[in-house]
Computed example of a mutant assay.
Amino acid sequence: MTDVYTMGEALGVVSSGQVRHQTEARLDLCGPEFTLAVALARLGHRCAYLGKVGSDELGARVLTVLRGEGVDVADMRVSDGVPTGLLLRECRVGREPRVTHYRTGAAGSKLSPGNVPIDRIGAAGMLHVTGLTAALGRDPRDAVLAAVSAAKSAEVPISFTVEYRPELWPSVREAEEVLTELARQSHLLFVRQDELDLVKPALTAEREVVVLRGAKGASVRADRMRYDVPAPQTPVVDTCGADDAFVAGYISAALDGLTPPERLRRGTELSAAAISCASDWEGLPTRADL
């Protein structure tokens, strides 16, 4: 049985300083669902990943890493004639990195409802999806909705991370409609502080809502109680991937049957590991490390 089934777009990411002045860069992989799958697998959970990559070297690297980390890639698809998506991440002193997307028409945007294995999702312990995948186009959005529908029919708990990226949506209104609908379907909701208004109708008492507050830490409202945890105190190398790692840690602790404060604590531990490494996922801990 799969503990967590997830789906999304795994990407290449090139990180550097200001490109016009740089002669060196770092090539890695990223994607919120990709990071989550690796993190959960390292902690001993059985995780399956659905997505599409191109028949190129980046696509091969994605599959090699996922297989090497013990993630189930039986449902991964390789698309001929289209590239694996790429991000350019320019680090800037004292400011958030500038991210340029090279993913229009990439393999990840070709994910469709026909790729969604209804039976496998119905047999999973949890489905985890993000608003980022839903923003990639109509077919990926319908694929996410199909997966959510399959999980609901089988009474599989649904975890949803809002992951709002305004540059990927045609309009704020469309984003609000889709993200709120997905949030309403979820049992476990992860939302950044600045995304709360986007999904306000879904912030109801019966839903477990985790709010990611950046430097202020995180909080969760569960069973009509609120719990808080401060941000990790650790040397910062790169903050990208911190929220994705936190989500993975929280879900891992939930799968282990831990209390909400303990879930927050594990989320913070994985977030600390992520920000202390240049990679979104390479520094994530194993169960023994915890």
Rank of each mutant, 00 (worst) to 15 (best):
M1V: 10
D3R: 05
V4C: 04
G8E: 05
E9W: 05
E9D: 13
L11Q: 09
S15M: 13
G17D: 11
R20F: 11
T23L: 13
E24D: 14
E24V: 08
L27W: 15
D28H: 10
C30T: 15
G31V: 06
G31N: 09
P32D: 15
L36S: 06
A37G: 02
A41I: 00
R46D: 12
L50Y: 01
K52I: 03
V53P: 00
G59M: 04
L63Q: 11
E69H: 05
V71D: 06
V71N: 09
D75W: 00
D75H: 07
D75S: 09
V78E: 03
V78D: 00
G85L: 04
L86A: 07
L86N: 10
L86F: 11
L86I: 08
R89P: 00
R89G: 03
E90D: 10
C91A: 13
G94I: 00
E96K: 12
E96V: 04
P97G: 13
P97H: 11
R98C: 07
R98N: 09
H101R: 10
R103F: 10
G105V: 01
A106P: 01
A107Q: 02
V116K: 01
P117H: 04
P117K: 05
I118C: 05
G122N: 12
A124Y: 03
A124M: 06
G125K: 03
G125D: 02
M126V: 06
M126R: 12
T130D: 12
L132E: 06
A135D: 05
G137L: 01
D139F: 03
V144E: 01
L145G: 03
S153N: 14
E155W: 08
E155S: 14
V156G: 00
P157I: 00
T161K: 11
P166R: 09
E167H: 12
L168W: 11
W169F: 11
P170M: 03
V172E: 15
A175R: 07
E177I: 14
L182D: 03
L182V: 02
L182R: 06
L182Q: 08
Q185R: 11
S186W: 11
L188V: 08
L188C: 01
L188P: 02
F190Q: 04
R192H: 15
Q193L: 14
E195K: 10
L198K: 12
P201Q: 12
L203W: 13
E206K: 11
E206I: 01
V209Q: 12
V211F: 10
R213H: 09
A215E: 15
A215S: 15
K216H: 14
G217V: 07
R221L: 08
R221T: 13
R221E: 12
A222M: 06
D223C: 03
R226S: 15
P230S: 14
P232K: 04
T234W: 13
T239Y: 10
C240F: 09
D244E: 14
A245R: 07
F246D: 04
V247H: 09
A248F: 06
D256G: 01
L258Y: 02
P260R: 05
E262H: 10
R265H: 09
R266T: 10
T268R: 14
T268S: 14
A273D: 08
I275R: 14
L284W: 09
P285K: 00
R287Q: 06
R287I: 06
A288W: 05
